[in-house]
């Protein structure tokens, strides 16, 4: 094929957009969507809160046996991470929806395409993760969760939640860009579920026996959970922190690459 259309002219006002501006706008778009269809966002808020209450009550005795006297200290961080990860599913849904309507093509054609289709949604998922983080923590503190780690503890929890949101949505986005059907959202949900629960989600590593133990030991989520929980279970220490940060850095890089390559698969 050969085609030649028009000449180059110094006409028009388009220039290379600033990536940060594009990302900020995509975050704004995501928040606009939450405000306009709150029903789609509500489950990712309600489920972690429900789970916090249910687990906090049902497994309090089991945790007490493992010397964790306040079950909420154990479950507030878990539910925060889950709320953060749920956003990834919403992101996969939104992406598949954009693909179906053709809106995605509009973004992809623009000079700021890469930022709008991948980095923007990743940033949006982190901003969205703050909402369940705040609400779940609030419910937890009202219910009697303690925070001996203080402000540092809140920081490590926030780092873990944003990290999980980032990694989970990178994965969900990569999957959505490859599968291009709503099944991608369901698969993302399953993957998050297994990653979370095949770790120290329920009990401390020392108390786990049998098949889950070796998996939980290797699962990077165990490190991330330790990071999220350290301020709730005691003082924040570097020893409990670095593993989680490293896990987030590695997983975040891998999932971002996965998402960007998913976008590239469109050109081929």
């Amino acid at each position: 094929m050969t085609a030649a259309l028009g000449e180059d002219r110094t006409y028009g006002v388009a220039s290379d957009p600033r990536t940060a501006t594009v990302i900020a706008f995509m975050v704004k778009r995501s928040l606009i969507r939450i405000r306009r269809i709150p029903a789609a966002f509500l489950p990712s808020l309600a489920m972690p809160v429900f789970q916090l209450i249910a687990f906090g009550g049902a497994f309090a005795g089991a945790l007490a046996y493992a010397k964790i006297n306040q079950a909420l200290d154990w479950y507030v961080p878990l539910s925060c991470l889950q709320g953060a990860a749920f956003g990834a599913m919403g992101l996969a849904f939104a992406t598949v929806n954009d693909l179906r309507t053709g809106f995605f093509d509009r973004l992809r054609m623009a000079p700021g395409g890469r930022a709008a289709t991948v980095y923007g949604p990743l940033a949006a998922s982190m901003v969205r993760a703050i909402i369940p983080l705040v609400i779940v923590s609030a419910v937890g503190f009202i219910g009697g969760a303690a925070l001996p780690g203080g402000v540092l503890g809140l920081l490590t929890l926030t780092a873990a939640a944003l990290g999980v949101a980032f990694c989970a949505s990178g994965f969900g986005l990569g999957l959505a860009l490859r599968m291009r059907t709503l099944a991608a959202a369901t698969l993302t949900q399953f993957a998050i579920f297994f990653a979370l629960f095949l770790s120290t989600a329920q009990m401390p590593l020392d108390f786990i026996q049998g098949w889950v133990k070796p998996i939980a030991r290797l699962n990077p989520m165990t490190n991330v959970l330790r990071l999220a929980r350290e301020g709730f279970l005691g003082e924040v220490t570097w020893q409990d922190t670095w593993g989680g940060l490293l896990a987030i850095a590695i997983l975040g890089t891998l999932t971002t690459v996965y998402a960007v390559r998913g976008l590239r698969s469109f050109d081929k």
């Binding site: 290379d16 957009p17 969507r33 623009a110």
Partner: peptide, 22 residues
């Protein structure tokens, strides 16, 4: 006309401006 039905006309024009660095 692939456009996001949840956004307003103004918002979409803003988005377009951002995407094209205006």
């Amino acid at each position: 006309a692939a456009i996001d039905p949840l956004m307003t006309g103004n918002e979409l024009l803003d988005l377009q401006a951002v995407l094209y660095g205006i």
